[in-house]
């Protein structure tokens, strides 16, 4: 399969938009688009990076998120979907994308004002500690990701 030609703007825009529409995650970066969507034959050239960056900058529901850490590529410039993660339930199988809904290490606030730091997000098993005066106080709290409590939690950014 030949290397994707990013100078073909129309094709590039089409690929990038369809990728972003299908993507459940809240953040994205240029490399990930190159590798996961555009066929990825070798490292992207700077012209490829510029071309993808241009397309991303034009997306109305994506904003610049600055440099974010990334486990595969190292820290690099990233973008955030303004409306947060989407499709956190897989249509086909009905399974929850629990790590998309809740990030480990992030803090979430319940309607009653309590703040929880998520310690574990796996399968249907969500755990956290209540944050009191900056301390992780008290016992480990179990939250079912499909529960009302879970649905009412809002991330504190």
């Amino acid at each position: 399969m030949p290397r994707f030609q990013t100078k073909n703007t129309a094709a590039l825009e089409s690929e990038v938009t369809s990728y972003l529409n299908a993507l459940p995650a809240e953040t994205v970066n240029i490399y990930q688009i190159w590798y996961e969507k555009l066929g990825a034959y070798g490292v992207p050239a700077s012209a490829d990076i510029e071309a993808i960056k241009t397309v991303l900058a034009k997306q109305p529901d994506w904003e610049d998120a600055g440099v974010l850490p990334n486990e595969k590529y190292g820290p690099l410039p990233s973008y955030r979907r303004i409306t947060g993660p989407k499709d956190t339930v897989d249509e086909k199988s009905g399974r929850i994308r629990v790590q998309h809904m809740f990030k480990v290490g992030s803090r979430y606030q319940a309607p009653d004002g309590k703040v929880y730091q998520i310690a574990l997000a796996e399968v249907y098993n969500l755990r956290g500690f209540e944050v009191v005066d900056g301390h992780l106080d008290g016992p480990m709290i179990k939250i079912n990701p499909t529960s009302d409590l879970a649905k009412s939690l809002v991330e504190i950014k």
């Binding site: 993507l23 459940p24 995650a25 490399y31 990930q32 590798y35 996961e36 990825a40 486990e71 595969k72 590529y73 897989d90 086909k92 199988s93 399974r95 929850i96 994308r97 629990v98 790590q99 998309h100 990030k103 796996e122 399968v123 098993n125």
Partner: peptide, 21 residues
């Protein structure tokens, strides 16, 4: 389908392995 085993990464919930592609 989205990864349902414990100790996974969020990209596995998108049906992806932890490689670049």
């Amino acid at each position: 389908y989205p990864c349902d085993t414990p100790n996974h990464k969020n990209f596995q919930e998108e049906g992806k392995l932890g490689t670049f592609t």
